[in-house]
């Protein structure tokens, strides 16, 4: 049948086309890959157990699988930065941008098969897959978050940010800066640790008598919609804004144009708008990562959950020095932080 010949031709051409492309497409772009964390281990050959043992003195092999870009100024970057900030010599491989859960599962399994010693599954949504994979590799340490428990697996460490704590502090500050008493929040979809931050923010602000309007736009990606949501908040009288997830850059822009204070979370967002970002809640996972790796050295390769919070220094409120924050407000924020640490203040989340 002619149809079939044609189809085979098509399929062959597909393979051929790909080969040609991979081989010949180079040279057109400048190589600027030098500045990222590429190369390093590369070869990806599976190491046998013996080789692993022999390599005990070499750097610890660590792999990260994460849903967004490693330079996203947010969730994924916070983990990559933390791993690079560790006090020990590690050999780091990254698979980022794997928002498809099944692809992430394949990458996690692949690293495990390659003999990587510590695998960080940086996404709560990977948990279901991890529960199936981890038992197959009992000598590998899996680090998974954000998650509050290890699902009963004894080679999994879990980590979780008490994002409500920073939200609460930001909420207190926001209420103090507002003259209208109305605050606006822009979220993606009502899920994940965005919720904890926003609940904390709301409780903090309401404890100071401010009114908070929370809008989930329904999308992680729609920058324009986030911007229009910020505009709508302003039109309804809000004069301080905050928000979570990657699409908030649109909202930060609106706040910047209107000269309205903004509060950040997940990473220091000062760079996005140096004049109006008041403070950002920043994650420092290295605090708990150090603990996990120390446990691993002593023979415990999993089974515990860790929380980063204001108390252990895994959560830090980073103020923007470029923003003229009244001294008494800053003092109040610091008192709130102290209160959360000593337990006299509850964020209500």
């Amino acid at each position: 049948m002619i149809t079939q010949n044609r189809t085979w031709y098509r399929l062959l051409a597909l393979l051929f086309g790909f080969a040609l492309l991979a081989a010949a497409c180079g040279g057109s772009d400048e190589t600027e890959a030098g500045d990222d964390t590429t190369a390093s281990t590369a070869d990806g050959e599976a190491m046998s157990e013996e080789e692993m043992a022999a390599m005990d003195d070499g750097p610890l092999t660590v792999a990260v699988v994460a849903p967004s870009s490693k330079e996203d100024l947010a969730f994924t970057q916070s983990m990559v930065d933390a791993l690079n900030a560790l006090d020990r010599d590690i050999d780091l491989q990254i698979t980022d941008g794997t928002f498809v859960v099944e692809d992430a599962a394949a990458a996690i399994r692949g690293y495990a098969e390659d003999g990587v010693e510590v695998i960080v599954a940086h996404g709560t949504q990977y948990g279901g897959s991890l529960a199936e994979i981890a038992p197959d590799f009992p000598d590998t340490t899996f680090i998974w978050g954000t998650a509050t428990d290890t699902q009963g697996l004894d080679n999994v460490f879990a980590y979780y940010p008490a994002a409500d704590e920073g939200g609460y502090v930001n909420g207190i500050l926001a209420a103090g800066l507002s003259t209208s008493g109305q605050l606006g929040v822009i979220g993606p979809i009502e899920a994940g640790d965005a919720v904890a931050y926003i609940v904390g923010f709301q409780n903090g602000a309401e404890s100071k008598g401010a009114e908070v309007s929370v809008v989930y736009t329904g999308s992680f990606g729609d920058v324009a919609l986030a911007a229009e949501t910020a505009t709508a908040h302003l039109a309804n009288g809000a004069d301080v804004l905050t928000g979570t997830a990657q699409m908030v850059v649109g909202a930060v822009g609106v706040a910047n144009d209107a000269g309205v204070p903004w509060f950040g979370t997940q990473a220091n967002q000062t760079a996005l708008a140096p004049d109006i970002v008041v403070a950002s809640q920043v994650y420092h996972w290295e605090v708990v990562l150090e603990e996990m790796l120390a446990l691993r050295d002593s023979g415990t390769i999993g089974g515990q959950a860790f929380e980063v919070n204001l108390t252990n220094g895994g959560l830090v409120i980073e103020f923007n020095d470029g923003f003229d924050l009244p001294a008494e407000l800053k003092a109040e924020a610091e008192a709130t932080i102290a209160g959360i640490i000593d337990g006299s203040i509850s964020t209500g989340a």
Partner: peptide, 12 residues
Amino acid sequence: LQGGIFQANLTN
């Protein structure tokens, strides 16, 4: 030029 930023799959 309205949003001021680019990201993966900006158009959504």
